[in-house]
Write a protein that binds this DNA or RNA. Structure first.
Lengths: 110, 110
DNA sequence: CGGTATCCATTTTGATACTG
DNA sequence: CAGTATCAAAATGGATACCG
């Protein structure tokens, strides 16, 4: 490209493709506090349907952010956890949080 | 127990409501390099339709991230720019970029 | 328990065409 | 130039119900 840029848009778009969407961050957030089973996640993410949860978990697993472990107990036990790679998203969560707080404060003042 | 940064999910969701979506970041990114007119943005954001651009600009303006200035020339001149508040998103862009780069690198290695 | 399958409503997007 | 209007298409969301 002709112009030198501090921020490149493509990596931002890439990141957005992976963590964008309604339930991605809530799932990641929930998994930040440790391993979770399907029903635990379903309870944590108020309002999510099993279909949506399945979709988002598969998506995150496919992208290497989440690990899925199956234990052949009766009944079945499945545990989801963040991979180290997924944990790398924490700075993103923090910067989003910071801006979100600022934004809320700003709205309140109006 | 070690002290660790506590992340609240609500501010993250709030932030996502405002900057989530297909064209928000590309617009913000484009405006990072200065004032832009409608057609310039349309050209910068490869593939955006005027309808989508109008929607996202109105949205960003409503949330105080973007300023819209109209000059009553003939033909009409309209300039869009980031407000200081919108510029506060730069750290978010940076952290997303950083993660996105890491992700791309990771994909390439596979 | 940990999901799928199904069906449908709602939203988001897309392609043009057109106006002040 | 800077958008609107319109209509169609596609992706997403939600409510059950059901299966291994």
């Amino acid at each position: 490209m002709e112009k030198e840029k501090f921020i490149e848009i493509q990596p931002v778009k890439d990141a957005f493709d992976i963590i964008g969407g309604k339930w991605k961050f809530p799932v990641i957030y929930s998994l930040c506090s440790g391993k979770k089973r399907f029903k635990e996640l379903e309870k944590d993410l108020n309002g999510v349907t099993p279909k949506a949860l399945t979709t988002v978990l598969k998506d995150l697993e496919m992208n290497g952010l989440v690990k899925r472990e199956v234990f052949p107990t009766v009944p079945l036990t499945v545990e989801y956890s963040l991979t180290d790679y997924g944990k790398d998203l924490k700075p993103v969560l923090l910067s989003l949080q910071e801006w979100g707080k600022k934004h809320r404060k700003r709205i309140m003042e109006k």
